[in-house]
Design a protein around this nucleic acid. Sequence first.
DNA 1: TTAAATAGGACTAATTTAGTCCGATTTGAA
DNA 2: TTCAAATCGGACTAAATTAGTCCTATTTAA
Lengths: 133, 133
Amino acid sequence: MLRISKRVEYGLMALQYLAKSGQVATTREISDSSNIPHDLLAKVMQSMKRDGIIDSFQGVRGGYRLLLSPEQITLNRVVSSLDEETAITECATENPDHETCAMFDSCTIKVPMQKLQVRLTESVGNMTISELL
Amino acid sequence: MLRISKRVEYGLMALQYLAKSGQVATTREISDSSNIPHDLLAKVMQSMKRDGIIDSFQGVRGGYRLLLSPEQITLNRVVSSLDEETAITECATENPDHETCAMFDSCTIKVPMQKLQVRLTESVGNMTISELL
DNA sequence: TTAAATAGGACTAATTTAGTCCGATTTGAA
DNA sequence: TTCAAATCGGACTAAATTAGTCCTATTTAA
């Protein structure tokens, strides 16, 4: 029905890795262990860093570390760090309007779609990293 | 997190229309009333016809009609009629294997993803057309 | 000083999705 | 009988999104 992006897949793998190790790990270490393209994972880590999910250390002994506990990191959070679009339809965002969808006024499935979004966020999106351990 | 395709959006609108009218309606009628590209809607209707959700009548007084009650038509059903990929990851399909994903063996988030798929199907996917009325 | 690491922007390639076009067939009505 | 309105279905193009690469700068421990 709805496919998860590679960015989110890689992000989840990396967070799982960090949660398991409990220590600082480099993108090289993670990408090698999981067969993830290194440069792409680097982007993913940077995004999650900016969002405050993980912490980073530059320089030769650098790397990343979890900043939140596995229980605190939800799929919703990971997705909103890593994906552009996070809603099932354009009108299922926080404050949808004509800017986002040309059919805004005439649309007859707007309200049901917004309800679906809530269901998705509350059931699927509430998964946490602790469920990956 | 996961966006619904235009095909599914249009499909839902059309099914809602058919459910409301309770009669035979043409793709022209539906596409005009909802501002949907006609030719694309035609494809969508054909797919849903093939899947047995709706019924068709050819010729000058032709069109489409619901074949199932609105309560019987789930989002899961609509999506599987209209989309190519219906799972959140390649490994969250019925019988996943190496054909579908190169990382199948080494992947460490396979099982959790399969559980997520179940959650998605059971919560979001269970919505029916009756919820659009 | 150097090598290993993050930071980040720009870019290309690949894939997926959206939408169009064409011709065939069916069929009710003028 | 003809015609126009409809479904049917394949092939195709265009657009958008996603995946992945590349390059350069900065940081920092050894």
